[in-house]
Write a protein that binds this DNA or RNA. Sequence first.
DNA 1: CCACACCTTCACACTTTGTCCACAACTCCC
DNA 2: GGGAGTTGTGGACAAAGTGTGAAGGTGTGG
Lengths: 223, 223
Amino acid sequence: MAERRILVVEDEGTIAEAVAARLRAEGFAVQIAVDGPGAIEAVRRELPDAIVLDVMLPGFDGLEVCRRVQAERRIPVLMLTARDDETDLLIGLAVGADDYLTKPFSMRELAARVHALLRRATITAEPTTLRLGDLEINLTERRVLRAGVEAHLTPTEFDLLVHLAGRPRAVLPRERLLADVWGWADASGTRTVDSHVKGLRRKLGADLIRTVHGVGYALEVAR
Amino acid sequence: MAERRILVVEDEGTIAEAVAARLRAEGFAVQIAVDGPGAIEAVRRELPDAIVLDVMLPGFDGLEVCRRVQAERRIPVLMLTARDDETDLLIGLAVGADDYLTKPFSMRELAARVHALLRRATITAEPTTLRLGDLEINLTERRVLRAGVEAHLTPTEFDLLVHLAGRPRAVLPRERLLADVWGWADASGTRTVDSHVKGLRRKLGADLIRTVHGVGYALEVAR
DNA sequence: CCACACCTTCACACTTTGTCCACAACTCCC
DNA sequence: GGGAGTTGTGGACAAAGTGTGAAGGTGTGG
């Protein structure tokens, strides 16, 4: 099996280093992110097999990270909660965390949980491909077929398409797409979304994406 | 959120009890059925939000239960398979199961799966649609149908309609509409509301919006 | 260093929409 | 019935939004 990649999201340097060291000793390739935006970016870039995620983070918190990550792609998440707070825990599970550890925790326990997480992930038949009408999106291979014909998409186009496909038929405002796909806070004055929609239409057919004037775009799916 | 109802279908008493106990601890209301016919009946009576379903059952098996249930109503199903048998698994997914667990499984894992199932269900079951008589307003898609026929509305027309639909039959003064829909403080001297009402009447029928002389407009709904 | 793929921005044409205006039709009240 | 105020209507016009092709910039891999 190829080396498994783990993303550790933790702003306290000493903890992050300790966790990373232990996981490396277990044979994982470990990346560290120290805040919310960094985590999102790292997920896109590194495509980790699992995430160890602190709930308390600068930028936006771990729950937000978890929600956004899960919106894109199914990745096992182990949550670290500082306090013995049931609220965090429940919210965490609700936004897609798979397991949790309450600080302080032992490194041995952490390692065991991460192993369990990955074992489960490989056993489970996670839906790796989205099927919407004659559109087929393979998330693990990042391939897209329309009516059986493969289209070559750029990375950004693919991410945009996946986001639209996550809420088929729903109208997603440009600001929302810019925030979720690009991670931009400010949506004023840019035509980037429009440009990429143009690309998707050219490659996948003009009828795939509906423009909702003054609002945004929606993925059309035959019912 | 109201308490979520889970139906556990499992003929082995000890397993059924253990599963039920754990799910109750997670805050769910749990019902147990021990065979196929009992499961079908329980689904009809209890209207559960999700089903945890053993494949091996007396009466008729879990796959049959799954098939029948899905034929009636879309309910998330978590399948429990005794053996590590791919055949059962594939059939299960084919007849509408959403996820599965192979025995033996941990209760923690089960709970996480059920949470995930419900989370997914609430996301997909979100076509927030307003229905008022023969008028159908889909908020996430921003589509409007009158008597089954779609009408293309401009952004402002749509927002105005939604505001009227939010208080059906109530008379909303122009000043109120201008404040809520347009964000204008000053209502003097403008006929903007009237213009957009004109548009709505043209596209959706003159009988939809009632004029209250000297006051404003109200959405008419057949009782 | 070059070729290449990609992302973003820009300028322009085109489409859609919002607001206002003028006049007709209507309502209400005396 | 008549008049004042209100509303309906069609269209003009400007403003805003969108589609499109191409250019500039960045980064990557050879």
